[in-house]
């Protein structure tokens, strides 16, 4: 039987704004399946985003949804979670939104280890504004503002999240839909900051400038270069060249921020 996505989608809000071939819809379906698996009561679930194509996702979902300003999702979400810790808080957005203009909020939300799940759709480009390079655009790649090739080094979002203190960090791709909902589910169940990086495709503003002849080519590229982290130890550095590790990249238990603040309240009231 076909999966019932409709009950999670706000009536009348489709079609979405995403281009044909964009992976954001795959991620949204994965998120819906994960929310169902976790049995989330949508009345007590806040889905918070910034600005950009990926950040339009919350509007389609029937929940408490907050579409904020560019880069600020994690900071708004921190306010929601702190004020009402009983709510489940999910952030979503793109690579530019989360790690360029929102980079400071991203790393500090990781550091606090506040209990939220941040699904970051990394399609290597600013799609909504027409394809300018982001901190995740591969060096040498073409973007509308790197006509001679991108001179910038690249952010590894997952490494950034681990370094900043997130306690659950995982990566997958839009070509691995089953793994998307599996990892988001684990992220939601994890008590602390969970970063789920989904490598995604933007055929419209990235693919066509970078010799991907079709969406299928982009998906094949994601699939061909994904190496499960558990298998990576068996491969040589040479074999790992140009590949990206997927699956759970880091996981640890550390006191969660709202729980820590509950201790502050106890002390203040003693």
């Amino acid at each position: 039987m076909a999966y019932d996505y409709d009950k999670s989608i706000r009536p009348g809000k489709l079609p979405h704004i995403w281009c044909p071939g964009c992976g954001h819809g795959i991620v949204m379906k994965g998120l819906i399946r994960a929310m169902d698996t976790c049995g989330l009561d949508r009345k007590n679930t806040a889905i918070v985003s910034g600005i950009g194509c990926a950040s339009r996702l919350p509007g389609y979902l029937d929940a408490c949804t907050l579409h904020t300003a560019h880069g600020r999702a994690a900071a708004f979400a921190t306010g929601v979670k702190m004020a009402k810790p009983e709510m489940t808080v999910i952030c979503c957005g793109g690579d530019g939104d989360g790690t360029a203009i929102g980079g400071n909020h991203f790393i500090h939300a990781c550091r606090r280890n506040i209990d939220m799940t941040y699904v970051i759709m990394n399609n290597f480009i600013y799609g909504m504004t027409g394809g300018q390079f982001s901190p995740c655009t591969p060096t040498g790649a073409k973007a509308s503002t790197t006509p001679y090739g991108n001179p910038d080094p690249v952010f590894d979002i997952s490494k950034l999240a681990i370094g900043a203190g997130a306690t659950f960090v995982a990566r997958t791709t839009a070509a691995h839909p089953r793994e998307i909902d599996k990892l988001i589910t684990m992220g939601i169940k994890h008590k602390g900051m969970a970063i789920i990086e989904v490598l995604d495709d933007c055929p419209t503003t990235y693919g066509r400038r970078n010799k991907f002849r079709s969406v299928v080519d982009m998906m094949k590229h994601l699939k061909a270069n994904a190496v499960p982290a558990v298998a990576a130890s068996k491969l040589t550095a040479e074999q790992l060249q140009g590949k990206f590790l997927t699956g759970i990249l880091f996981q640890e238990e550390r006191p969660e921020y709202c729980a820590q603040y509950a201790e502050v309240i106890k002390k203040a009231q003693a």
């Binding site: 600020r72 306010g79 929601v80 702190m82 004020a83 400071n104």
Partner: peptide, 16 residues
């Protein structure tokens, strides 16, 4: 972490 984040958190909290 910064002034902008503080304003964002205030708005987020107020929405609850």
């Amino acid at each position: 972490e910064d002034e902008i984040a503080a304003m964002a958190a205030v708005i987020g909290a107020s929405l609850t």
